[in-house]
Design a protein around this nucleic acid. Structure first.
Lengths: 169, 169
DNA sequence: GTGAAGTGTTGCGGAATGCAACAGACAAGA
DNA sequence: TCTTGTCTGTTGCATTCCGCAACACTTCAC
């Protein structure tokens, strides 16, 4: 009994987007649990912050908070821990507001290690997919994410583009 | 361990699956934050538990814990809260081990309400997708999830099949 | 220079989670 | 039937993540 509270889309959309929502919920819940179980040196939260810095070099604490809809205090505390661990540091060129961030050498190492482990799980799941299907799925996911980025995009011009997506449709 | 259909993973696979992983991390983080912000009556955790009971009527506490890789104590506590709220109850027919669960009337109402709100966010994001693209994306996500279900499948015979997926290829 | 706005930090409390220990229920065998 | 082992659920305790509010510091605009 889904409530078909469709915005204005075609009648088809309701069930399909409901399925997408349910699937995303499962992915979220299962993903964080998987990351928790795999005994990584960094938590899922830390990992996502590192990932953001990788994608947006020179970003500041506030940018991370906006990207993940987190309170500034939360990011501040997480970053404090990461800097104490020596995986993140503030760049020297503090031109403008805030303090740009970047990964340290060990930061890259930790990031690559965690990504490698988690990617193993994903690879395993995608084992019986064709390359084309994988590429298409990756493309759709990135499209979904950039779309979901929404209005929070008042960013620095230095940063890398939000997603390198291309590949086949 | 997997069937050897594709294990060699062509050189393409690495980057693509890495993109998928990164996209999924972002989706997870952003999704839970979105759910937190939308002031739902139920938390994301509660919501996912309700969703599991919807998909697997008569399931027990342990089943939920296994599905989401959570500790039994965590699920126990969450369920205690949900039963106190009157959205979940134990079924009367306690044949066998454990105590089968089901949603109450207000449980269905709360579930539908939350799904409706969250679906609004998803619908908005998918605004400029064609129906076919949405359907394909939904299908890929469900395929990914069922594949990721993995080996944790020591299930009761009563329950509904793990996922109703079918639809278009 | 002064005021306004942006940025980061800290105190406080709440929610979610894991681990370990425990109690009750069920199943299989003597 | 009784006993023993296993499964299921619960509770105490600690930890992590998070938000809100208040604060200090910096940067910008006038």
């Amino acid at each position: 009994m889904r409530s078909e509270s469709n915005t204005g889309t075609t009648p088809e959309r309701g069930p399909a987007t409901a399925d997408i929502l349910r699937a995303l919920i499962v992915i979220s819940r299962r993903g964080v649990a998987d990351a928790r179980i795999a005994n990584l040196s960094l938590s899922m939260t830390d990992q996502s912050i590192l990932g953001y810095i990788v994608d947006h070099p020179g970003c500041r604490s506030t940018d991370i908070a906006q990207a993940f809809r987190l309170n500034r205090s939360t990011v501040s505390r997480q970053l404090a821990g990461l800097m104490k661990l020596g995986v993140v540091r503030e760049t020297t060129d503090a031109s403008g507001r805030g303090r740009p961030l970047e990964l340290t050498g060990s930061g890259w190492a930790a990031y690559d290690e965690a990504i490698g482990i988690l990617q193993g799980v994903v690879d395993e799941t995608l084992d019986d997919w064709t390359d084309a299907e994988v590429a298409r799925f990756a493309h759709d996911l990135q499209r979904f994410n950039t779309g979901a980025a929404g209005e929070t995009r008042p960013r620095h011009p230095i940063e890398a583009p939000d997603a390198p997506l291309d590949k086949a449709p």
